[in-house]
Design a protein around this nucleic acid. Structure first.
Lengths: 348, 348
DNA sequence: TAGAGTGCGTGAATCGTTTCAAAGGCGATT
DNA sequence: AATCGCCTTTGAAACGATTCACGCACTCTA
């Protein structure tokens, strides 16, 4: 088909075509491509001219099939549309660039099936390693992957096993920071919009919430109203507030959202309900994304070292590959930091 | 190396290993994988068991090398961290999923070199087509690509040639909308933070700006203060304001930012300078991203149909492939819409 | 019972590259 | 003139999956 303006040959030119045109063997063409200094100047020029004339482009599949491996790693994050993860990804890229690795980036959208599909895709393509923010208890899959020779580093979650490394921020502490802050402001009835507990971050932040309540002598049964949402984004947050407002009983005076995107949606819904912030409802988010400080009511949030998180994960992955058996698996953990703003504290 | 816990064989199992273990030929294994109904039940089960036992995973390179092509297209956007582009990408994905195509997504970060590198990478990997938001006059590269059999659709920019399709939003109109609005509010001295004119969107929005000024009988030399920034993100916007404030002469009373991320940074910087909005400076952004309505001062912005933009681009690309020579290239153009909020109009 | 038809399975050729042992060419050394 | 070593180039063997013409064993029909 396609005898349109498209070039004469339907098949893209191969190294063999180049070799013929330049009057050399395929081995020489390959040498020009990969070890140019082993080829005499005149030959090299002749080959380069042929490459130019034929518009030759290497076939990555053949290349990789023969070479067996490529300088590529994969990363799967929960939500590529979340600024938190794009900043993390930037950190990953920055580290990978130093070792001339390429990144295949995907978003699982918190769906374990999508995650599994991408993992398989990555594996079929022969990536050397993967960084994953697991969307559920996919540990078995990851262990199996590791056993098949693909290095694994957990991203933004602490590894439950000793032989897989991880880079995380202390989410228990982060959750506690948020609640301690709210309790310190006098709140005794707090709503918590959270995602499914199968997501480690959601689970851990909740642990922190509970421990902080306990530390303040509050009974979660009275003090905590938990709302679970499916998507950790603005729409989820909006849905969470509507869910909260449909509940009977005293309305909480404070709200902790599992991330800033969710908080954004929650704020939108709260405004629609005409709820004053922080007077009627104090709000705390998580991630301190770029726009958090710029909202109608600047959002109190738990800040994490995003770029460093990604950078370190990539670093661990690359070092794991280069150091081989001598590599010591490790759980790197950073500390979060509470940034207080007007959404929780009127004096801020 | 690596005699750690990693499985016995260092090489991952191939179809041949599976065939041996199941006691069949490689052709049969391939049939089980690709045409399971042509294989008897007992044989199929035997092969599947072997696959399971060996943890066999297809080698995408070999597969693709033989098959010659894969159901994959690439997309290059200007900035993956910009919510506008993630929404567009979502639209692309949604359309691709329907035809079981996979997406390779990359961000050029407005760097023509990065863009060229990714295009080459995509081509080496044998993508069927690409969607590109060009970061500079890379048209020649794209035409050459098209001539080599890779379909091209321009994304968020109107095609300058008849034989390449494009999906865009009328940026000239969008720029005009913003300025007409500001002029209508009585502003006669307007700052415009824009990116390099090599980026089509920047160029076109500026055209709209100029034509709107002309339409209002204003001389750009007096009425317009142009600031050019390198990165169309929050940091760029902040830098733009600092640049603006370093300028001699009357300070403009209004500001148009080429996108919302830039506006976000500009607002941050304006606040740091203690400038009242919209009283001392009316601000208009572009894209109407998710947080625009939620800012301290809700941001007036030019809204675009993001999801539809991506969906349509992917649709065009796929149809181009399936319809072959009979496909009619086209320039799809959507209309932008001004959303007025408090950052420009105190009464909003 | 021969012949045709059908359903399964085989195995070699193929895709485009890299790699590597070996050969060829040439000047320098003995 | 023979030998050595160096530099350049060659050509064939991989890599792992897919494809396809063919063969085998069987059943069905005339």
């Amino acid at each position: 088909m396609s005898t349109t303006t498209r070039g004469r040959a339907d098949r893209r030119p191969s190294i063999t075509d180049v070799a013929k045109r330049a009057g050399v063997s395929v081995g020489t063409v390959s040498n020009v491509l990969n070890r140019p200094d082993q080829v005499s100047d005149t030959t090299r020029d002749r080959v380069l001219v042929a490459i130019e004339e034929l518009q030759f482009v290497r076939n990555a599949s053949a290349r990789q099939l023969r070479a067996g491996t490529i300088q590529t790693v994969g990363a799967i994050v929960l939500d590529i549309a979340n600024p938190f993860f794009t900043e993390v990804a930037r950190g990953v890229e920055d580290r990978l660039a130093a070792d001339e690795y390429t990144l295949m980036l995907s978003s699982s959208d918190e769906d374990p099936e999508r995650e599994a599909r991408y993992l398989r895709l990555f594996e079929e393509h022969g990536v050397q390693g993967v960084m994953v923010t697991p969307s559920a208890g996919s540990l078995d899959t990851l262990l199996a992957l590791r056993d098949r020779g693909i290095d694994v580093v957990l991203l933004d979650t602490t590894s439950p096993v000793d032989d897989i490394s991880s880079v995380a921020v202390d989410d228990v502490r982060g959750g506690a920071l948020a609640i301690e802050h709210l309790v310190g402001l006098g709140h005794t009835r707090i709503a918590f919009i959270n995602g499914p507990l199968t997501i480690k971050q959601c689970h851990d932040r909740r642990e922190g919430v509970l421990s902080a309540l306990a530390g303040a002598g509050l009974d979660p049964a009275d003090a905590l109203v938990e709302i679970t949402i499916g998507s950790l984004n603005a729409d989820g947050g909006e849905a969470g507030i509507n869910q909260l407002f449909a509940l009977p009983g005293d309305r909480p005076t404070a709200l902790f959202c599992v991330n800033d995107l969710t908080a954004l949606g929650a704020l939108r819904a709260l405004r629609a309900h005409g709820v004053g912030i922080p007077a009627e409802m104090a709000v705390v988010g998580y991630d301190d994304v770029v726009f958090a400080s710029m909202l109608t009511v600047p959002l109190t949030s738990v800040r994490q070292p995003t770029h460093q998180l990604g950078w370190t994960a990539a670093d661990l992955l690359l070092r794991q590959r280069s150091e081989g058996a001598s590599f010591q698996h490790q759980r790197v953990q950073f500390q979060p930091e509470l940034v207080v703003r007007g959404s929780s504290d009127p004096s801020a």
